[in-house]
Design a protein around this nucleic acid. Structure first.
Lengths: 333, 333
DNA sequence: CTGAAAGCGCTTACAG
DNA sequence: CTGAAAGCGCTTACAG
């Protein structure tokens, strides 16, 4: 910028004003500045700009998800990116692997890099460590799951409602022994979907059978858990899998056992190729990109000056019937 | 840091030395500094640090892929993240949507934010605009596809070899009319896989039939293109789809037409649930996470001082037999 | 409207 | 080993 000022024959301040369009500048000077910029191929250093400007804004944000390689979070990230792009904001993206320590490390690293805001799909646990950064002006939004021990804007899917709908759907097809396969109960979405499952059972006067409820530490365990459930006597006539990776493992197990046409299955979250399976895979689908966009809108409204109470957005889910969830109990094998 | 110095009763420089562990500091002073840091909850401002340090390193990099929501690029990003994490480097991630203008905008925005390096899955076209940034010290690596008009480190899969293997595999199963569905020819991977397809045909003395080669502008067109190909007389007995999203559309079309057991199919890139389809989906699989890790290693070796000629890493592909690629021509319908 | 000067939060020669 | 001072590339009151 010093060079630009020298070439244009104006002061540093004038170059800054032209580049920022912050003050009116005499047209002929502006032209000289623009010419100098073109000649030198000058590009402003945004980090120096951030350091000096009054609002300390950096036009960058941080995104922390469980795993960016999970299609759900990949689509969610993309939703955030799409909104950020309209404001020339770039996003750091990191994976917490459901590890609070890692999540915190990421959040601190992001804050140390001066991001304007943080969108976090939080692990279970205490997120009050973020209070200091928020007080320092970092906008904070949680997505997919709410935070613990801190009140903040949050964008969620209707996990309870969606899960209850699954149960109603299966009951309508005649099922009464419906198993639930979910993540560890300390994962918010897993807990909410389990709650919805229970509400669904209660709504139809069905008793809960603890042996039909499986909370898994890792999605990979769903394969074995599904096999074990289907080998029980009496076996459940329907399965509700509470997450995309779990659904995939359950489908794999059922197909290997040749039970895909005899045991009903509904998954939470949509999955690629679900419509091509035989039978097609019925799911309660959320729109992860929309979730990401909603979270980004919440974030930017804070950065735009909204200073009211925390908001909680709940996005509806959609039941997509494709066959596996419409099988009647005791369907021919 | 000023506050820390005041509380610890030392100079700014001493605090900096303690925090950076750059110079030996008298133990009692170091203790006082650490205490002051703990008391104040101090965290260093990394952007200010970057601005002032001699090497201008920011511990952040930029990643540009076609679409972070595409499972292939999502896994690739994660591979990069895993290597970056070992060095406490955070990554910006952006999607170019196969648009050179957008890619360039992203690259410039990233460079303006002072990233130490850029890993780009480039669109077709001229990437020489990046020369200036590389000369300014930004490390530069291309992944999945090589750049145009600039020589730089690149990590690729063996697209030609993998595609030729597909043809050999199908020929071994008895096929002679093998159709190819790929992206636009200006997408490098599409062009390479087409080349491999042609080399495969030549290897087995098969003539190329232009009507069996389809270059699509969008993966979504693969659905209609597959239907059209299979309605031809004579129809191809086997399909080679050159990319995950194209494979998915082709599978969908074949299943709807009920031809999945009569027409062979091999896809480039693996796909979720491929093993559960009937028949299972045979693919040439690359390891996108490994590709990402390789690219990140290339980048960090540059940042570690490697200054030799450009390197080109080519990762092997693996043919995964699952059924669809082992169907014989004229299999019963 | 313009420029000279101060200063964002750090690191780094330079003396001592 | 330590501190005072300069300065990274910018923005922003403050005069004029």
């Amino acid at each position: 910028m010093k060079d630009v000022a020298a070439v244009a024959g104006v002061s540093l301040a004038t170059v800054s004003r032209v580049v920022n369009e912050s003050h009116a500048v005499r047209p002929d000077l502006a032209v000289r500045v623009h010419d100098a910029i073109a000649v030198l191929g000058y590009r402003r250093d945004l980090t120096a700009r951030t350091l000096r400007r009054a609002d300390r804004l950096s036009a960058s944000i941080g995104v922390i998800v469980e795993d960016v390689a999970n299609p759900f979070f990949a689509a969610l990230s993309r939703g955030i990116e799409d909104v950020a792009r309209t404001r020339d904001v770039l996003a750091f993206v990191g994976s917490s692997d459901e590890d609070l320590h890692r999540e915190r490390e990421l959040a601190e690293g992001l804050a140390a890099r001066g991001v304007d805001g943080l969108i976090i799909a939080p692990c279970g646990g205490d997120h009050s460590y973020l209070l200091r950064d928020r007080n320092a002006g970092t906008a904070l939004v949680f997505v997919d799951r709410p935070p613990g021990f801190i009140d903040a804007d949050t964008a969620l899917a209707d996990n309870v409602g969606g899960a209850a709908d699954v149960v109603s759907h299966l009951v309508a097809a005649g099922h009464r022994r419906i198993a639930f396969l979910g993540d560890r109960a300390d994962v918010f979405t897993a807990a909410q979907r389990l709650r919805g499952y229970r509400e669904g059972l209660a709504r139809h006067g069905l008793a809960e059978d603890a042996e039909l409820i499986q909370s898994l530490s890792l999605p990979a365990e769903a394969y074995g858990a599904t096999r074990a459930l289907l080998e029980r006597q009496p076996a459940p006539t329907a399965l509700f899998t509470s997450q995309n990776l779990i659904t995939i493992e359950a489908v794999r197990a059922m197909h290997e056992m040749g039970r895909q046409h005899t045991v009903a299955l509904v998954g939470f979250d949509d999955v690629v190729l679900a419509d091509v399976l035989e039978p097609g895979l019925t799911v309660v689908s959320q729109d992860p990109a929309a979730l990401g966009r909603a979270a980004a809108e919440l974030l930017f409204s804070r950065l735009d000056g909204y200073d009211g109470p925390s908001r909680r957005l709940v996005l509806e889910t959609t039941l997509v019937e494709r066959g596996s969830g419409e099988l009647a109990p005791g369907a021919p094998s």
